[in-house]
Every structure is written in structure tokens, then in C-alpha cells.
């Protein structure tokens, strides 16, 4: 646990040192703020005290930003050789993966916390469905966790950051849109399966204000699969044929 926290601290520090964190925060707050308050379909246009617009935008911005945050996490360490340095210290592969995962999740958490003023402002404008807002935030956090674990996996199989970024987006796009689209185009069991796999479906059901264990399990399983696959990739150096 202590090792995970040490790695988490360093990764967070490195996000802020390299300006990635600031760019992420400014861009995220900028996009979501613009569309929530100034765009053609903003809160005033909808004339409803709701954060639906914000959640819709955050859903897409995080989808694009998370691969940019995760792409260097392992790929860079592999390229410079610092991975070897880390793993020859008393650090297990798991502690390394979890440290990087939680650092990214904390950064996302910080950016979400910084959007709380939107919530407070909207709540003062009219009656707001508080449960829906908190469920929406939770949904964003779960979704971020899922995309971070996919991003870390993509970063672990290459030492080229661009490849890691594109790969994370490619895997992400399936969960983000393609599965949902295919579910509409097929029928029967196939349609149900694809609908279950579609991340948007679960995100939408969550952001409506219902926290269903089915959705939570879905998000947690994606995280688990992503992180386990990363562990397998890292441990591959020791596979004895």
C-alpha cells in the first residue's frame, strides 16, 4: 500500500511538472464550461436547472483526454529503461500499475471537483435533481477508471507513446460508440450482448440518477480486465517457455 502511494505521488507530481495536468484542467474546464454556459444549447437555452449538458460534454472530453494522460505512463518507462530500475526496487508489477492508475484517477477527480462550481451555480438557478448530479459525477468517475485502465494497458504493450494513444482511442471507441451502434443494428442475444458491452448504455443509465449494481459491476470489470492484462504484459518478460 505504501509503495503504491509513493508511486502515485510521483506520477501526480510528474503530471503537474510536465504541464500535462494544467493543460488537461484548462482544456477540460474550458470545453465543459463553454458548452454548459455559452454554447447554443447551454443551460439557459434548455431553461432547466440540470447538468445534462455538462455530463454530455464531459463524457466526450474525458474519452479523448484520458488516452493522452495514460499514453506515456508505461510506454515512456519502457523506452527509457526506468521500468527496470523501478522493478528492481522492492516494487511489484501490481504496485506499479496501481500507483499509475490511481495517480491518473486522482487527476481526473481533481478536474471533476473543479467543476463543482457549475453544480452550485445551476442549483441556485432553480430546482435541481441532486441525486442525478451525484450519480452523474459517479458515472464520470467510473467511466474514467475504465478508460484509464484501457489506456494503461495500451501503454504497456508498446514503447511508442503515439501508438499507445491511438490504440487506447481505438479500443475506447468500441466501448464508446461502436458496440452501442451495433446493438441497434442486430437483434436477439447478439444485440443484448453488445448493448451490455456498450459503455454509453451504462453511463447513461447511471447519469439518469440510478446507481444500479449491474452498471457498477460493468465498470469495475473493465477496470479489472484492463489492469490484469497490463500485469500479464509486464510479467511476460519472465514467461518460461
Amino acid at each position: 500500500m505504501k509503495q503504491i502511494w509513493i508511486i502515485t505521488k510521483r506520477e501526480l507530481q510528474s503530471f503537474f511538472d510536465s504541464l500535462i495536468a494544467y493543460i488537461m484542467l484548462v482544456a477540460f474546464l474550458g470545453f465543459s464550461g463553454f458548452f454548459t454556459w455559452f454554447s447554443r444549447t447551454d443551460v439557459f437555452y434548455l431553461d432547466q436547472a440540470s447538468l445534462q449538458v455538462f455530463f454530455g460534454i464531459a463524457f466526450w472530453t474525458l474519452f479523448f483526454f484520458i488516452p493522452a494522460l495514460t499514453m506515456r505512463l508505461i510506454a515512456e518507462e519502457k523506452k527509457t529503461g526506468t521500468l527496470e530500475l523501478l522493478l528492481t526496487k522492492p516494487v511489484t508489477d501490481w504496485q506499479l500499475i496501481m500507483g499509475k492508475f490511481s495517480a491518473t484517477l486522482i487527476l481526473i477527480l481533481i478536474s471533476l471537483v473543479l467543476t463543482l462550481p457549475y453544480y452550485i451555480t445551476v442549483a441556485r438557478l432553480g430546482p435541481i435533481d441532486h441525486a442525478a448530479v451525484w450519480a452523474g459525477y459517479l458515472g464520470l468517475l467510473f467511466m474514467s477508471g475504465a478508460y484509464i485502465s484501457i489506456g494503461i494497458f495500451a501503454s504497456s504493450i508498446t514503447n511508442n507513446q503515439i501508438v499507445a494513444f491511438l490504440l487506447a482511442l481505438l479500443i475506447g471507441v468500441f466501448f464508446h460508440i461502436i458496440f452501442g451502434q451495433l446493438a441497434g443494428a442486430t437483434s436477439g442475444f447478439m444485440s443484448q450482448l453488445l448493448d451490455y458491452l456498450s459503455l454509453s448504455t451504462h453511463y447513461e443509465s447511471m447519469s439518469r440518477g440510478v446507481i444500479d449494481s449491474k452498471d457498477v459491476i460493468y465498470f469495475l470489470s473493465i477496470m479489472a480486465v484492463g489492469l490484469f492484462s497490463t500485469e500479464i504484459v509486464l510479467a511476460k518478460r519472465n514467461v518460461v517457455e
Binding site: S14, T80, L85, P90
Partner: peptide, 23 residues
């Protein structure tokens, strides 16, 4: 290690603190 990998963006003292903590 052979190629002496280091976190080049880290200040020297921070880096030594990081390794000390990990150890």
C-alpha cells in the same frame, strides 16, 4: 543498470528522495 536510466525531468534531490522512499 547498464544504460543508467533516470527520470530526466526530475530534480536530482526529488529523485533521490523517491528512490529512498521506494527502498
Amino acid at each position: 543498470p547498464e544504460s543508467n536510466p533516470l527520470y530526466t525531468e526530475m530534480p536530482l534531490i526529488d529523485y533521490l528522495r523517491y528512490t529512498a522512499e521506494l527502498q
